[in-house]
Each structure stands twice: as structure tokens, then as C-alpha cells.
Amino acid sequence: MRFVFSLFFVLNVAFLHAQNNAEEEMVIKTITNFFEGFHAQDSTKMYNAVYKTVLMQSISKTTSKDVTLSLTNFKAFVGQIKSIPETDSFKEVLLSFEVKIDGNMANVWTPYEFWYNDKKRHCGVNSFQLIKENRQWKIFYIVDTRRSFN
């Protein structure tokens, strides 16, 4: 009887772990799709990765070293990305993903480096909040930190 219980427990844990890994992969895929659109300046792909309303904020320091929290309009952000000249290169490199999921909510922590015309401009951490609706993960909140190298 103990053997049957142990086997049942191990199989249950393995099943739940596999489910969590699949969900984590779906969450990461949503973020990578967003950045594929970002790098391609493809507004449709970026909008497909976000919820119907999305909030964007940044935490940074002013030149006088005061900490500031700024709000960015998502539509304006997409417009800025689309307006980058084709002659310029830009890339946000995500260094890792730390995913936490509870039901239909996920949080992803991604340290990053931002490069513009082959020069590292700033680095920090992105924190994404996602919601799972109709079996799809969508980003509804992005906050990042920014440390400049200039």
C-alpha cells in the first residue's frame, strides 16, 4: 500500500511539474514574441503580445540622483519604436527569465542590456505582469529599472 501511495505521489508531482514547465514556456514565449516585434518594429506583433490595456513605467535616477517613477503611454512607445530610422540598430538583450505563476497571473523578472548602434546605452531589470485569458498569456504591466552608461 505504501508503494502505491508513493508511486501515486511521484506521478502527481511529475505531472504538476510538467504542467508548470509548459505554462512557463508559454509565458516566456509571450515575452519573446513581444521583443521579436519590438526588434522588427512590428507594431502588430507587439500589440498581439499585450492585453487590451497595458501600463508601462520606468524607475530611474535624474541627473541630480533623485529616484523617479515615470509613466509611458503604450501607443506612444510603439510609435517611438516604429520611428527609429532603419539605419540605426537597437536591441534589448534579455539575460535570463525568472517566472512565477499563480493560476491566471504570471510575473517575469528579466535582467537586460539595451544596445543602440552597437553601444550599450543602459541596463536594468524588466518586471512583466501577465494575465492568462482564453488560454493565452498577455502582458498587462511592464516596469523596468534603468542604469545609464553615458
Rank of each mutant, 00 (worst) to 15 (best):
I139R: 03
L71K: 10
S127I: 11
L71Q: 12
A14Q: 11
Y112Q: 03
V108H: 00
K52R: 15
A14M: 12
T145H: 09
Y51P: 03
F74Q: 05
M26K: 14
T87F: 08
V54M: 06
Y51R: 10
N20M: 04
F90L: 03
N48E: 15
W109H: 07
V125A: 09
E86D: 15
F149L: 13
F15C: 08
N117W: 04
Q57T: 12
I59F: 09
K65T: 07
Q136H: 10
F77Q: 03
T145P: 05
E36T: 15
K82M: 12
T110P: 00
E86M: 04
T32G: 01
V13H: 10
H122A: 05
H122M: 07
T145C: 08
V50R: 02
W137D: 04
N126Q: 06
F97S: 01
T72Q: 06
S70P: 01
E25I: 00
K61A: 11
M56F: 11
T68R: 05
D88I: 00
Q57P: 00
Q136E: 15
I142L: 10
K61P: 00
K119N: 15
K75F: 02
F15A: 14
I31L: 09
K29T: 10
N12C: 13
Q19W: 01
N126C: 06
E36C: 01
L11M: 15
H39F: 14
T145D: 09
V50Y: 06
L11Y: 08
E113P: 01
E133I: 10
V78F: 05
G79A: 09
L55N: 09
L69A: 09
T53Q: 12
S83I: 01
V54C: 13
S148P: 01
T87H: 14
H17D: 11
L69H: 08
M26G: 04
I59H: 08
V10P: 02
D66F: 07
R2C: 05
K119L: 12
T63R: 05
Y116M: 08
D88M: 05
I31T: 07
T62S: 13
V93S: 11
F77A: 02
L55S: 12
G79F: 03
S43C: 08
Y141W: 05
D42W: 03
V125F: 11
A49H: 06
S43A: 15
N134E: 14
L11C: 14
I131M: 09
N107H: 06
Q80A: 11
G79E: 07
E25N: 12
R147V: 07
V143L: 05
F128A: 02
D88H: 14
L130W: 08
F5P: 03
A40R: 14
K29C: 04
K82V: 10
Q80S: 11
N117V: 06
T62D: 12
F90Q: 07
I59M: 12
K82H: 07
F8V: 13
N73P: 04
F77S: 05
V50P: 02
V67N: 13
I81F: 02
V4T: 14
V125T: 15
K52C: 10
S83R: 12
D144C: 01
K132W: 08
S83M: 07
D66K: 11
W109E: 06
P111H: 03
E25P: 00
F140W: 13
F3R: 13
S127C: 10
D66I: 02
G37L: 05
Y116G: 01
E133L: 14
